[in-house]
């Protein structure tokens, strides 16, 4: 936790300075932070040893909610759109969670995949509502009541996202240190004992599932607003796999790692797409295997040595 705070503080300062020193990277970084929110959602479930190959569903739920609300021309502000997206994702997750939390491991991964792919197909096929495969455009909303031009919107949207990320990281960090968060680790290591303590592991996982979807929805909303576009691919299983990938890259079960991982990922992706378009998936694949084999704690833990402190 101490390392997390220290590392987080350093990372925060570095990231916060970007719009001043490397202005062209502002949008890229905002996207990375938005994706990081979804990755953090995956990280929460990883604490319980569960991976979802369908979190794209909640990411898309957040993004499409924002898109629909903007298209409805209600004049909603960014600061209202984002919570709305997160809320819709959470509601869907809590409802579906009644089924999902009965499954573990491969089955958990697969039932999530199945549902997200159903959503993907619907988003693609219900052309009149969702815009089909082309997706929907999201016109630039106001930010804190202000109508901003593109550049200043991008500038302030970055800081808004950064503020959200900091608050979310602190709240999630606290949650993970609480009995509910520690209960997730207990689910990973021994559900039998949890049952014999009189605890419903399904309920603990259900809460985590809701939290995790809320984060994914929030992330999806940020992406919808920043990129001005949503598409069915948001719910596609490869996108969900990407979230899991980044979570492992950043250090499974690590709050700061989720964001560090997604920033690294976004940078690599941008450069790889430009310089090695044919090989960039190979680069990702090889690094994923390398991390799993040689550095299972992920990027953020590597520099602080192998042992994780008990505190």
């Amino acid at each position: 936790m101490r390392f997390d705070l220290l590392f987080g503080a350093i990372a925060f300062c570095a990231v916060a300075g970007v719009p001043f020193f490397i202005p062209w990277a502002t949008v890229m970084l905002t996207i990375a932070l938005g994706v990081g929110l979804a990755v953090l959602g995956v990280v929460v479930l990883l604490r319980a040893g569960q991976i979802s190959f369908g979190h794209g569903l909640y990411y898309a739920a957040g993004a499409y909610t924002v898109a629909f609300l903007v298209q409805a021309r209600l004049g909603l502000d960014t600061l209202l759109l984002l919570p709305a997206g997160a809320l819709v994702a959470t509601v869907i997750a809590v409802a579906f969670g009644f089924f999902a939390v009965r499954y573990r491991d491969i089955f958990f991964a697969m039932i999530n995949l199945a549902v997200s792919m159903v959503a993907f197909s619907l988003l693609e096929k219900l052309y009149s509502i969702t815009g089909g495969g082309d997706g929907l455009n999201v016109a630039r909303p106001t930010l804190a009541g202000l109508k901003l031009g593109r550049v200043s919107f991008e500038f302030w949207m970055f800081y808004t996202t950064l503020a959200i990320v900091v608050v979310v990281a602190l709240v999630v960090g606290r949650y993970l240190a609480s009995p509910l968060g520690k209960g997730l680790e207990a689910i990973k290591s021994n559900e039998t004992r949890l049952e014999y303590l009189g605890v419903s592991s399904a309920r603990i996982l259900h809460i985590a599932y809701g939290v995790s979807a809320c984060l994914a929805g929030l992330g999806g909303g940020v992406i919808a607003i920043v990129t001005g576009h949503v598409a069915p691919e948001f719910a596609y299983w490869v996108r969900s796999g990407e979230f899991v990938f980044i979570a492992i890259l950043g250090g499974a079960g690590n709050v700061v790692g989720a964001f560090a991982g997604s920033i690294v990922y976004e940078i690599v992706r941008n450069y790889a797409a430009a310089f090695a378009a044919d090989y960039w998936q190979t680069i990702l694949g090889v690094s994923l295997i390398a991390i799993i084999m040689f550095a299972p704690q992920g990027l953020t833990q590597m520099r602080f040595g192998k042992k994780r402190g008990g505190a």
Partner: peptide, 17 residues
């Protein structure tokens, strides 16, 4: 402490274990 939380029903997300 997890056993204690189980007994007391203290599953508060804002309280550190």
């Amino acid at each position: 402490l997890l056993a204690l939380s189980a007994r007391e029903g203290t599953w508060r997300p804002w309280m550190r274990l």
